[in-house]
Structures are given as C-alpha cells and as structure tokens.
C-alpha cells in the first residue's frame, strides 16, 4: 500500500523543495547587511566639486539622510537617477551622494549631463570607504537615522515603491519619535 504512494510523496516533497528554492531565489543574492543597526562607518572624504573641503558622518547627523552610492560607470545609476531626483526635490529626505571608484572629472560630467540631485557628493576614489560599507554593487543606498545609525539598506536601483512603502515610512517614524 505504502509503496504505491511513495513516488507521489517523493514528488510532492521535491515539488515543495523546488517551490521554496524559487521563492527564496530573489532574496538569496541580496545579502543582508550586517551594518544594519550599527553606526555609519567612519569616513573623511573630499567633496566631489570642492576637494579642499572634507566631510564625515558627523557632518550629517541630527536628521535622517540617505547615503546613495553612485558612479559614472554605473549603468543602473542612470535608471535610478529620476527616482533620486524626485526624492531630493520633494524635500522629504536628504540625499548624500557617495561617488565611488570614479574619476572626479567623469563624475562631475555625469552630474552635469543628468542633473545633480544630491545635497552634496563626496568622492571615495579608491573605494576604501565603500568596502567599509560592504558595498559590492552599484547603486546601493543606506538610510541613516538622526543618531547616525544605519536602519535600512537597499541594493540596486531605488524604486518609487521601495521609497513610498519602506524608506519614507521609516523616515516619518523617526521624525515622529524625534519631535
């Protein structure tokens, strides 16, 4: 009796296994950042269009902000650019650009071509700071709370959905608890 149903049971088990594999395959390549809940990695980087000026995390604390890793060689950054621009224009969240592994001239040219949505962009020429942030793709974005702690990380192009459903509600919650 048992042996008649054994192939069916095995088939169902295999089916279940494959279904689980399919549903997690999207998140599998998205590595959860160990930095969430931790302070922003320290950095001291030159401002992209004014290299004599240097900025670090302490210059941005006090209000929530988004660190957006971008580069002129990054194709997806062009896709993401209108979303970042809309966000910056709306005034709902400060966006700090972190230009990494990029020639400053190329980066400035990119901003001139597409428009500069960033409150400020700093330049991580050798990519050291981006390693400290655990960045392995571009673009990547980190939401930082007023105390300077990373609360959320998004890998890949930001979409209006991610902003409206995840990031901006987090920002509202911070502002509600802060005031």
């Amino acid at each position: 009796m048992m042996s008649r149903f054994l192939p069916l049971i095995l088939f169902l088990l295999l089916g279940a296994l494959l279904a689980v594999g399919l549903t997690i395959s999207d998140t599998k390549t998205h590595i959860p950042s160990p930095l969430i809940g931790r302070p922003v990695p320290d950095f001291d980087l030159p401002v992209l269009d004014d290299p004599a000026r240097r900025l670090g995390p302490q210059d941005f604390s006090g209000a929530p902000y988004l660190i957006n890793f971008w580069a002129s060689w990054c194709v997806t950054c062009v896709v993401e650019h209108p979303v970042i621009t809309d966000l910056a224009r709306s005034g709902r969240l400060r966006v700090v650009g972190l230009n990494f592994r990029d020639e400053p001239d190329d980066a400035l040219g990119w901003l001139a071509r597409h428009g500069d949505p960033y409150a400020v962009s700093v330049s991580d020429y050798d990519g050291r700071v981006s390693i400290n942030f655990g960045v392995y793709a571009a673009p990547e974005s980190f939401l930082v709370d007023p105390q300077g702690e990373i609360v959320y990380k998004h890998i890949g192009a930001l979409t209006p959905e991610v902003l409206e459903e995840t990031i901006l509600p987090m920002v509202s919650a911070m502002q509600a608890s802060g005031s």
Binding site: I31, P32, S33, P34, L35, I131, N132, F133, G134, Y136
Partner: peptide, 8 residues
Amino acid sequence: LIERYGDF
C-alpha cells in the same frame, strides 16, 4: 569581511 558583507 564578515562585519561588512556578512557570513555570505
């Protein structure tokens, strides 16, 4: 590396 990229 784990502190930055996780166990992955």
